[in-house]
């Protein structure tokens, strides 16, 4: 399922115009994305939680050329699935 299918499914289930459903879905993910940009945790009971983890940089090699390269540290969101979703998926 992609975002437009999610928007269509929401519009149908809640009797909304596509425009309104699109606004809702976009606003939801934009709020979540912005929280992560601010390094804020997201906790959605039954679905899961996100937190931004920092990964240290390291010296690596380009596997093709063997050149030594500096890999910079980075921040990446980490998702932990919530109990309800975990159980439903594994059923």
């Amino acid at each position: 399922m992609n975002k437009s299918q999610l928007i269509e499914a929401l519009a149908k289930a809640e009797n909304l115009t596509l425009k309104k459903a699109e606004m809702v879905v976009n606003a939801m993910f934009e709020n979540m994305a912005e929280a992560l940009v601010q390094k804020e945790r997201i906790e959605i009971r039954g679905f899961g939680s996100f937190k931004v983890k920092f990964y240290n940089g390291y010296k690596g090699r380009n596997p093709k050329t063997g050149d030594l390269i500096e890999v910079e540290g980075k921040k990446l969101p980490f998702f932990k699935v919530g109990k309800e979703l975990r159980e439903r998926v594994d059923r």
Binding site: K3, L6, A13, M28, F29, M32
Partner: peptide
């Protein structure tokens, strides 16, 4: 109602082992 519904639709999709791709945010897969 809409927030709960969006979460339900997302959970239903994953419960059926169907991937969920939200462009600009990320991809959930089973």
């Amino acid at each position: 109602a809409v927030v709960e519904r969006v979460l339900d639709i997302m959970k239903d999709s994953l419960a059926q082992s169907e991937d969920l791709l939200i462009s600009g945010f990320g991809k959930f897969s089973v």
